[in-house]
Simulated scan of single mutants.
Amino acid sequence: MPPTPSPQTTLGRSPFAGIALVVLSSWSLSTLDASGKWIMAVGLPLTFLCWVRFFVHIVLVLALIRPRSLSKLLQTQRPYAQVLRGIVMFSSTFTFFSALSYLPQAEATSINFLAPLIMLACAPWLLGEPPRLSRWLAALGGFMGILVIIRPGSGLDPIGVALGLCTALLFATQYLCTRRVAIDNPMTTMVWSGGVGATCMTLALPFTLPNAWPVLREFGVLEWSVLLSTGVWGALGHLMQIQAYRLAPASMLAPFIYLQIVAAAALGWMVWGDFPDALTWLGIAVVCGSGIAIGAVEWRRRPAPVPKAKVS
């Protein structure tokens, strides 16, 4: 799934290291998607998969935090926005894994990259930002690219396409919530988002475990390793992304985020033998081009940094 924009972005000290971390993050998150798709194919219910994904995620994140720092990280200036972001993140994970059960990984991932364009197009009404024609044109271009990908004759399951578009809308909502909680520490958002998902799925565990237990009893070392790795890849991908945004400006990293589609296509080909055809790649290129173009436009519009006053 596409990485979530970091709640805080700073002009970095090591842009090349930031780019490397974004590329590694894209592969980590794509491996999460591939692992989830594979483990569902062997019969594990989606609800139990989501519990493992979020539970392992929050355990790993908490393990990296010093106990004395945890209470401070739990403090948020916008708790309702953090809870809403966590609910939306959990919901988008559920719908995306559902879409993966119907669609090849590359196509499902490319549909999700419509989300940032939807967010920018809706920003005037939802964030109070000035309306800009360039954002609407970029969103229109991305939507045209999606139409090429899901065109009649592409062989994509309509249910999977509908779930993919629903996921894109949820991701757009998640990005909007991310802007609302940008005043908090990025690790605070990581803890809240993972904690909300883990809490929701733990409360549902008495209802989901009975269906999962017969499948889990047949699992070997490979199946358990892939299942547990979903939380590892998810936490690792988001942690690397946060560090990337600390090392390099967001506008510099934006084009490299779209390499996740390449990672998804490579993993889909290696694991299932799925590879997009020429027209699908054309649609993917239109989606990526729209996102990269509006990223460049937004970078040029950024306010100039205010020079620091000299101390005499």
Rank of each mutant, 00 (worst) to 15 (best):
residue 199 T to V: 14
residue 207 F to I: 12
residue 135 R to G: 11
residue 55 F to R: 03
residue 22 V to D: 03
residue 256 F to M: 09
residue 221 V to G: 07
residue 22 V to C: 10
residue 56 V to Q: 02
residue 161 V to N: 01
residue 34 A to V: 10
residue 90 F to Y: 09
residue 277 D to F: 05
residue 163 L to N: 03
residue 99 A to S: 15
residue 246 R to P: 01
residue 232 V to L: 14
residue 182 A to S: 15
residue 245 Y to R: 04
residue 281 W to A: 11
residue 11 L to Y: 07
residue 249 P to T: 13
residue 98 S to P: 00
residue 226 V to I: 15
residue 171 F to S: 05
residue 102 Y to G: 09
residue 44 L to D: 06
residue 276 P to R: 01
residue 196 V to S: 03
residue 269 W to C: 13
residue 143 F to Q: 00
residue 134 S to T: 14
residue 296 A to I: 12
residue 201 M to V: 01
residue 26 S to N: 15
residue 123 A to P: 05
residue 218 E to C: 11
residue 248 A to C: 13
residue 191 V to G: 08
residue 82 Q to V: 13
residue 123 A to C: 11
residue 131 P to F: 10
residue 307 P to K: 03
residue 67 P to M: 08
residue 271 V to M: 15
residue 56 V to P: 00
residue 65 I to P: 05
residue 216 L to R: 04
residue 137 L to D: 07
residue 232 V to H: 00
residue 261 I to P: 01
residue 231 G to D: 08
residue 233 W to F: 15
residue 308 K to E: 15
residue 162 A to K: 02
residue 31 T to F: 10
residue 253 L to A: 08
residue 99 A to G: 08
residue 71 S to H: 07
residue 278 A to S: 13
residue 160 G to E: 02
residue 228 L to W: 01
residue 156 L to T: 09
residue 261 I to Y: 03
residue 209 L to E: 04
residue 55 F to V: 13
residue 158 P to H: 04
residue 192 W to R: 08
residue 31 T to Y: 00
residue 112 N to Q: 14
residue 200 C to F: 10
residue 145 G to N: 06
residue 230 T to M: 05
residue 51 W to P: 02
residue 15 P to C: 11
residue 137 L to M: 14
residue 149 I to C: 05
residue 104 P to C: 12
residue 94 F to C: 11
residue 111 I to F: 09
residue 58 I to V: 14
residue 284 I to Y: 04
residue 123 A to T: 08
residue 140 L to V: 14
residue 276 P to C: 10
residue 134 S to L: 06
residue 188 T to E: 07
residue 29 L to D: 01
residue 25 S to W: 02
residue 218 E to L: 15
residue 7 P to V: 14
residue 240 M to S: 08
residue 261 I to L: 06
residue 255 P to D: 04
residue 284 I to L: 13
residue 164 G to H: 00
residue 103 L to P: 08
residue 192 W to C: 09
residue 169 L to N: 02
residue 60 L to I: 15
residue 92 S to W: 00
residue 274 D to H: 07
residue 67 P to F: 06
residue 207 F to G: 10
residue 14 S to W: 13
residue 46 L to A: 07
residue 183 I to C: 11
residue 268 G to T: 07
residue 33 D to T: 13
residue 214 P to L: 13
residue 209 L to V: 11
residue 148 V to T: 12
residue 106 A to L: 09
residue 60 L to S: 08
residue 223 E to Y: 05
residue 161 V to A: 11
residue 283 G to I: 12
residue 280 T to Q: 15
residue 164 G to M: 07
residue 192 W to V: 14
residue 74 L to P: 06
residue 9 T to S: 14
residue 172 A to F: 11
residue 16 F to R: 05
residue 134 S to R: 11
residue 280 T to E: 11
residue 18 G to I: 09
